[in-house]
Design a binder for these strands. Structure first.
Lengths: 367, 367
DNA sequence: CCTACGATTTAGATCAATCCAAAAGCGTTC
DNA sequence: GAACGCTTTTGGATTGATCTAAATCGTAGG
């Protein structure tokens, strides 16, 4: 109601078209279109006139119509498998920030780790003609999916996990290296019985952690103790109690993620033990809560926000150059040592949080 | 490459159109369109033929083109101010689930609590011609925004927070009632010095908590003690230490959210006090972590997933009937009592989580 | 005076669907 | 065999942008 367009035949507000602008400014539709797309072909005087008409008529660009002709929607599909997990929340925030800067906008779907849901969403994305996909493949994703997307002509960047054979575009963290850092740290603190809990599933991200664990343990000439569990707080709570009841209980545990580590620390307390004194605990992710737990948790920082940003950047690059060399961006994890693995550590300010250090990124290019 | 469309002039795979299907099935474009939209006007034989052609040619529906003509995109814009917060993660999951069922898909934006970013996103949504908006208004949102959206002909459902004057569509929780429940519970346990921490900002959601707190305290003839702080874990950690250093320290605190409550419990431990024994702590939200903290946290459950679902349903209803009566769906909170407010409670299984009880919803309709 | 030139601007086709009014098909009945 | 009523089907217009090749314009060179 505020500003009715002056053109009389427009039925509801918001349906002013290029045609209307053209008539008002005394030029052709084409010229208005060029102005909207900041083309250098248009004379400055004309451009100003057109801009003025656009303003007075309250025109709104119709991206749908533009996409029909240009087959570019400025739209991306993002699939994660658990948006309620703060790690993915941070990642999505990073994606959002990077896309926002480039005037892109993203569809989000939560696959709930169901390949069927994931596929349905991807099909829908195809109908909406998104320019590309950011995919955290759900559990049990058919590796052929990536080839299918490629058949569909849909650029796809995998994030955090990956399936199928390289080369593909991928952004994630070097989890193998992360677990190695954790084990090395614990060995340096004198631990010899170092267990690993987590990882019943078989993604790349889980496998990488295993590799890191077994390799590091072997390097130090120690005996591995690996317990497969779910990846929840609850699972950590139970797993630690199982381990501590064994004939040779571990003196330290490395956990698949921070949630499990918190669970493990609670489990230790339930047993009357003190985390960091009776048994060291190391997590993975370094979520905000890690600095403020009791005791503060040593954790391998995996920079979800930075991963999100990198993934988005990668996708935009692939859209601009569909046949360019595939790229893998792998951020280096960083170990944040706190009291849960080092009771001797000074009692610091509780919120010494780590900043994402994206400059540690390693870039691989597969031609 | 898998299945090349038989139509020779199509440049890349995936660009099979209605025209191609029509030619292949020996009918007109219009008929194919009717089949796609499950129109009862088409004879069964014809429908089957067309379906077969669609399959063999590998046709993909182009929603962009359809939207151009029908001005319905089957698309929604969702704005939250902190997607990294697990509460919003759960809410978005609820929204996603509800929309998925109705073949809708949603754009997500993280406003980072900036009205400018929020507005930019909303403008972009308008360009994409979304059918509606789900909005958690960012801090400092101009109340006129809701009227502007209405001018734009964009149905908008506010979620969790709201600005502007009713009537509008809204889905949220009765925070006032929630805080009341918490205070009543504490009084019943014999507490007389009950403080409230949190809420320096001025949203509806914060104001409602205040109202609940002051009203309940007054009802019981007690003296209020309210500390305004930020809404972070860190803030809770500091606030409790401030309060406990006062001449009459509280015997119980109610916190704006669970994050702050966790911080407060940590702060008590830092002072050598035991949460639940030396000072009771109650949070709000009942996040998953609450059941597994040390001690388990009493919390007012606010059902984010259910709120998300209700909000999405509301939006779809409004799209179908733009001039219908505005609705407010307000879920009733439920108090989940655990040891942090009741040290005498039996040591239960740590993960007795609450199920969202959406049947407690109260529906208001403003004509 | 005519043409060529670079810089702008434009008409008309095109993109892939929906909408609408009109036509076609078809079995009855007069 | 024409008229009728009913279900199906169909051209052609429409939606709002982009793309392409051609038109316009003022000026300078031959």
């Amino acid at each position: 109601m505020a500003r009715q367009p002056t053109h009389p035949s427009s039925p509801r507000p918001g349906s002013v078209t290029l045609e209307d602008i053209a008539a008002h400014a005394g030029v052709s539709r084409s010229t208005v279109s060029l102005v909207l797309r900041e083309s250098p072909l248009v004379a400055e005087r004309t451009r100003d006139n057109v801009r003025a008409s656009i303003k007075t008529l309250g025109y709104v660009y119709n991206r749908g119509a533009a996409a029909l002709r240009s087959s570019r929607t400025h739209t991306l599909g993002v699939v994660v498998y658990d948006i309620a997990n703060p790690f993915f929340g941070a990642m999505v925030a990073g994606i959002d920030a990077a896309l926002h800067r480039e005037n892109y906008v993203s569809f989000l779907a939560n696959s709930e780790d169901s390949p069927q849901r994931q596929l349905r969403f991807l099909e829908r994305m195809r109908e909406h003609r998104v320019d590309g996909i950011l995919l955290c493949p759900s559990e049990g994703t058919d590796p052929a999916l990536i080839a299918t997307l490629s058949d569909w002509n849909l650029p796809c960047v995998q994030v955090l996990r990956h399936v199928g054979e390289p080369p593909f575009d991928y952004a994630g963290t070097d989890f193998e290296q992360g677990v190695r850092l954790a084990v090395d740290h614990l060995v340096a603190r004198g631990h010899r019985q170092i267990a690993f809990i987590g990882g019943e599933a078989e993604h790349s991200a889980t496998l990488a952690r295993w590799r890191g664990y077994f390799a590091a343990i072997a390097d130090h000439g120690l005996a591995p103790r690996h317990l497969r569990t779910a990846l929840t707080r609850r699972a950590g709570f139970e797993a630690i109690q199982t381990l501590m009841a064994e004939p040779t209980p571990p003196s330290a545990v490395v956990c698949h993620n921070d949630l499990m580590a918190f669970g493990a620390m609670l489990g230790l307390k339930r047993l009357g033990l003190t985390p960091g004194v009776d048994c060291a605990v190391v997590g993975t992710d370094d979520v905000e809560e890690a600095a403020l737990s009791d005791p503060p948790l040593t954790s391998v920082a995996t920079h979800p926000y930075a991963i999100g940003e990198e993934a988005a950047r990668l996708a935009l690059r692939r859209i601009a150059d569909p046949d360019g060399a595939r790229e893998q961006v792998i951020l280096s994890p960083r170990l944040q040592v706190r009291e849960s693995s080092d009771a001797a550590e000074r009692h610091q300010d509780p919120a010494t949080t780590s900043k994402a250090s994206a400059q540690h990124a390693r870039r691989l290019t597969t031609p």
